[in-house]
């Protein structure tokens, strides 16, 4: 299980958990003390990261999240970029584990 966190300065914490299978993110979980409207947009966010390559850059990850969020959804205190950063941190932790 990989775990990465990123707190937006002056904002909220994003924590990302997932398992890497065949160089892809699986069983992705996004949690934290952010605000999100509506609640169901969380499924859009986690769904957008499922199956994504471990090679994806921070901005590619952020773009996926941004596109997947349903119309009118609002993430308050954090951002798609913050989610991308948390994922990259989790992957970096994995590289360290392997080394």
């Amino acid at each position: 299980m990989q775990h990465g966190e990123y707190k937006t300065p002056g904002g909220k914490l994003i924590a990302v958990d997932f398992v890497v299978v065949d160089a892809k993110l699986t069983d992705v979980r996004v949690t934290g003390d952010f605000f999100l409207y509506p609640d169901e947009a969380l499924d859009d966010i986690t769904g957008s990261l499922e199956g994504v390559s471990v090679e994806a850059t921070e901005s590619e990850l952020a773009e996926r999240v941004r596109i997947a969020m349903r119309r009118g959804a609002e993430l308050v205190g954090s951002s798609p970029e913050a989610i991308g950063t948390a994922v990259r941190r989790a992957l970096k932790a994995e590289e360290i584990d392997r080394a």
Binding site: A15, D17, R29, V30, T31, G32, D33, F34, L36, D39, L42
Partner: peptide
């Protein structure tokens, strides 16, 4: 807990 927080964390 807040709506989007993980119990474990």
């Amino acid at each position: 807990l807040g709506r989007f927080q993980s119990v474990r964390n």
